[in-house]
């Protein structure tokens, strides 16, 4: 196995790596890349795996390169602005943006010059009709809006939903999202994206957050799907149990 700073085998390996990266990304990219980044391809198959997956995603226009250091900060900024949901360096604090940023941000409406003391807040009737403003009052709500369901939830249907979410956020093809692959180690899906996908899955099925939940307990698609399916059948299929 190659060791850092060792003999001719490593150098030959590194030359091959550099050539491959040149073919994939161009001379300029390799010239600007940090040595440790290039070295990671000499010693790690995972680096190849994640890079090729990212490249595939990039070719589909759904992602940008996750680990590749940009040779020019201006390019990094441009990439980030085109794909705000891109991996690691572009992690979003709260949740992913729903759309690419507008080229020109719309101007914020000018506040009235007069002090707002005389202004009145909108009435409920006014805001009730507004998109992006949804009120939930448990004392009057009939339910949580989720469809009724009698038959048990199956592993396969929950899996399909999760895979669709992961496809969307990573740009990976469904085939590589294998049930027992480690999301982080094998598929280079970082914890930010894992959290997003699982939160999206909960939202889709109307399952609230659990105080004890930690993402580390669900490292594979199989573990995550099993967790969700069990919860669905415990919490959302009580009607099926009732006579």
């Amino acid at each position: 196995m190659a060791q850092n700073g060792a003999g001719p085998d490593v150098r030959a390996g590194r030359a091959a790596v550099e050539l491959s990266l040149r073919v994939l990304f161009g001379d300029e990219f390799v010239a600007g890349a940090e040595a440790s980044f290039v070295d990671s391809f000499v010693t790690s198959n995972a680096a190849w795996r994640s890079t090729l997956l990212s490249l595939w995603a990039l070719s589909k226009g759904t992602s940008s390169l996750p680990q590749a250091p940009a040779p020019d900060p201006a390019i990094a900024a441009t990439q980030a602005s085109v794909t705000p949901a891109s991996p690691a360096p572009a992690a979003l604090v709260a949740a992913p943006p729903v759309a690419a940023p507008p080229v020109a941000a719309p101007p914020v409406a000018e506040p009235p010059v007069a002090a707002p003391v005389t202004e009145v807040p909108a009435t409920a009737a006014e805001n009730g009709s507004s998109a992006g403003f949804e009120v939930f009052d448990p004392s009057t709500a009939a339910g949580d809006g989720m469809p009724e369901r009698r038959e048990p939830w199956t592993y396969e249907e929950v899996r399909a939903t999760l895979v669709a979410l992961l496809e969307e956020s990573t740009g990976y093809p469904a085939e590589v999202l294998e049930d027992d692959a480690d999301l982080e180690a094998d598929l280079a899906i970082d914890s930010v994206k894992q959290v997003e996908a699982l939160a999206g899955l909960r939202e889709r099925y109307g399952l609230a957050i659990e105080d004890s939940f930690t993402i580390r307990d669900y490292r594979t698609i199989r573990q995550a799907v099993k967790y969700m399916t069990d919860r669905l059948n415990n919490e959302r299929s009580s009607r099926a149990v009732a006579p």
Partner: peptide, 20 residues
Amino acid sequence: AVYVCTDVGEEENLRGLAGL
């Protein structure tokens, strides 16, 4: 308790929240 799903980054939504 009442829950309101809205983006507080939009002023119009805050106006709506105050109205509610």
